[in-house]
């Protein structure tokens, strides 16, 4: 009986969901859910607490991409190491780049930190610019509108609903933005270091200054020489904050904190990166709470 009920329930949800959407990261899932409501069935390919650059292209993900009517990615080269084989092996003609079923959100934004020269001697850099725009809450309404626009093209029957949802989101989001602006105001001008250039958008938005990275080059593990230089600089300039991401080892950050008396903060970079950051609003709430405390 329980089984039948479950089957009916599943069947029901399958019938209600009109569009299968596969998204690369949890924040895109949250946005898509907000805009698409019960008209979309969403699968998230990456986990929020793992390195967004290195997602394992497991065959189960191939299956999820093959089922999708729409694939939404972060873009800016963040998925370059794992999305191409998934798309290739999905045998899904509806989500190939250049089709209606493929949406690259970075196309709607201007990326910062675009390098003027590109060489792998400088680490695993992103030639398109810094792809970690998720840390800036101000980009979200723009992305919600982009998703609403694309959902409307795929499913014109519910176009008004998608547009309305995006507009409602934008209105509510403005209240959040105003609150966060106020909460972050005292932090303006604060100098800090971070593990990877993961929070540049957040820092730029609220006027904080990143003076160094724990990794000597993007994608390269910490070296003792670089760490010692960093400690020397932090002592000389009285830098008291370290932003550590959730997926790299925090060993070096702890060591630096111990040597300099700086505070090490575990910062979420996406929805579900830490337990409290379970929604888009809670993501920024958590980031701001942790950095201001």
């Amino acid at each position: 009986m329980k089984k039948i009920l479950l089957t009916l329930l599943l069947l029901n949800s399958a019938l209600l969901a009109e569009i299968n959407v596969a998204v690369s990261y949890p924040f895109i899932a949250a946005l898509t859910k907000t805009v698409g409501g019960d008209k979309v069935e969403i699968v998230t390919l990456a986990k929020g607490n793992w390195d967004p650059h290195f997602v394992v292209p497991r065959p189960s993900l191939i299956r999820q991409v093959s089922r999708a009517d729409l694939l939404i990615i972060n873009g800016g080269g963040l998925e370059i190491g794992w999305m191409p084989p998934l798309i290739r092996q999905s045998h899904n003609r509806h989500i190939q780049p250049g089709t209606k079923g493929f949406l690259d959100l970075s196309q709607f934004l201007t990326l910062i930190d675009k390098p003027t020269s590109v060489s792998r001697a400088n680490g695993d850099i992103h030639p398109e610019g810094n792809p970690h725009y998720v840390t800036d809450p101000y980009v979200m309404p723009k992305l919600a509108n982009a998703i609403a626009q694309r959902l409307s093209e795929i499913d014109p029957d519910h176009s008004t609903e998608y547009q309305n949802n995006a507009t409602t989101f934008e209105k509510k989001w403005q209240i959040n933005l105003a609150r966060w602006e106020k909460e972050m105001a005292p932090m303006k001008g604060t100098e800090l270091i971070q593990y990877h250039e993961l929070f540049n958008y957040f820092l730029k938005r609220y006027g904080l200054v990143s003076v160094g990275n724990i990794e000597p080059l993007p994608g390269i593990n910490p070296s003792s020489r670089h760490t010692l230089e960093l400690i020397k600089y932090m002592k000389a300039h009285n830098v008291k904050l370290i932003l550590q991401d959730v997926y790299h080892s925090s060993k070096t950050a702890k060591y630096i904190a111990e040597k300099t008396g700086a505070k090490e903060i575990l910062m979420p970079h996406d929805v579900d990166a830490v337990h409290e950051a379970d929604t888009l609003t809670h993501l920024y709430d958590t980031m701001i709470k942790r950095i201001t405390q």
């Binding site: 292209p57 065959p59 191939i62 370059i80 190491g81 999305m83 191409p84 084989p85 290739r88 092996q89």
Partner: peptide, 10 residues
């Protein structure tokens, strides 16, 4: 390896 980023299949 140099050049374009080789993404490996599983």
């Amino acid at each position: 390896a140099i050049g374009s980023h080789g993404a490996h299949s599983f």
